[in-house]
């Protein structure tokens, strides 16, 4: 009951947001500049939320998320630019191949823990990048030129799907199993939970949506180059998740929105841009060490007085 109510509230809210933005675009108040920021926001939310399911929910420290994004970006671009398929099909192919890559990487590496897993995922992302760097079919180091096909609608629909799937996964039996792995892997193993299975599933879902985000990204920015998906990109995504609060989906989304706005606002001050950006991160981390939202969700904040089940 409660869950389905949240689902409907979210759906209505999403529709309202979409209608308002679409209205503003059609009246001409939001020109391409703001539309582009909105699309970027959507991409960053997808990346943040898809990493959130791996780090925040399942507690597996992956720092190679840009690698899956690259897979999604390149394969969707190959589908649309080289094979001439329509964009939705391209996005599906990109996301599918990214999920497959997630499975392939996840099965051997998720037996590792903590730092070891982090290093293995980082290594994977670099391998992906170097492969694309050396394949002439996708342009090598010079990159692949892509026609702009993403619209705000594509980006928004993708975000809604991403959030719905991941929120539902988290609230399901599988999600609770994943959370138990985050809390104590040995204990959950002892309880009869197939920890490797759940870790791989969470990893594959995360990769799937990272691939989707990559597809939207590729078709919004005219050119994709292997350097775009370097490990700094992985850290950008990691920052969204940590800043939002490890374990909070809405936190990850809010942090992604917040940092996208900060970043585009600061474009006018090139000299001090990175200093201010970093200062914002440091200040937030000093005053909110557990992130903007901690492990809470934005919905839990409206239930005052009810049983305080969601403290840390």
């Amino acid at each position: 009951m409660k869950k389905s109510k949240a689902f409907w509230v979210f759906s209505v809210l999403a529709l309202v947001i979409y209608a308002v933005v679409q209205g503003l675009i059609s009246v001409g108040i939001l020109d391409l500049y703001y539309q582009n920021i909105l699309v970027q926001m959507c991409i960053n939310i997808m990346l943040a939320v898809s990493l959130h399911i791996i780090i925040g929910i399942t507690g597996q420290f992956s720092i190679g998320h840009a690698g899956f994004m690259a897979v999604g970006a390149y394969f969707s671009a190959i589908a649309t630019m080289k094979l001439g398929l329509p964009l939705p099909v391209g996005l599906l192919i990109g996301a599918g191949v990214a999920a497959l890559a997630g499975l392939l990487v996840g099965i051997p590496t998720l037996r590792l823990k903590g730092d070891y897993l982090a290093i293995a995922t980082l290594g994977f992302a670099e391998i992906i990048r170097i492969i694309f760097l050396n394949v002439d079919y996708v342009g090598g180091a010079a990159g692949m030129v892509i026609t702009n096909m993403t619209t705000w609608t594509y980006a928004f629909v993708s975000v809604v799907i991403t959030i719905l799937v991941i929120a539902n996964f988290t609230n399901s039996r599988h999600g609770r199993a994943a959370i138990s792995i985050r809390e104590d892997e040995i204990a959950s193993d002892a309880m009869g939970i197939n920890t490797t299975y759940y870790k791989v599933v969470a990893f594959a879902i995360g990769s799937l949506f990272a691939g989707l985000a990559g597809g939207i990204f590729a078709h919004n920015f005219f050119i994709i180059q292997p350097t775009t998906f370097g490990f700094l990109k992985s850290f950008d995504i990691l920052i969204y998740v940590v800043l939002g609060g490890l374990g909070s989906l809405s936190g990850a989304a809010i942090a992604a929105i917040f940092l996208t706005i900060v970043s585009s606002y600061l474009a006018e001050y090139p000299e001090t841009r990175m200093i201010i950006y970093s200062l914002v991160l440091i200040i937030v981390m000093l005053y909110r060490p557990s992130g903007l939202m901690g492990t809470k969700e934005i919905t839990s904040l409206f239930k005052f007085g009810k049983k305080g089940g969601s403290q840390k």
Partner: peptide, 22 residues
């Protein structure tokens, strides 16, 4: 009107859009 693109292609697109529309 100089704008920084952080040496990233995506940011270069953003900067171009900003220069064109804003």
């Amino acid at each position: 009107v100089p704008v920084d693109n952080k040496s990233e292609s995506a940011e270069a697109t953003n900067a171009a859009i900003k220069l064109a529309t804003q």
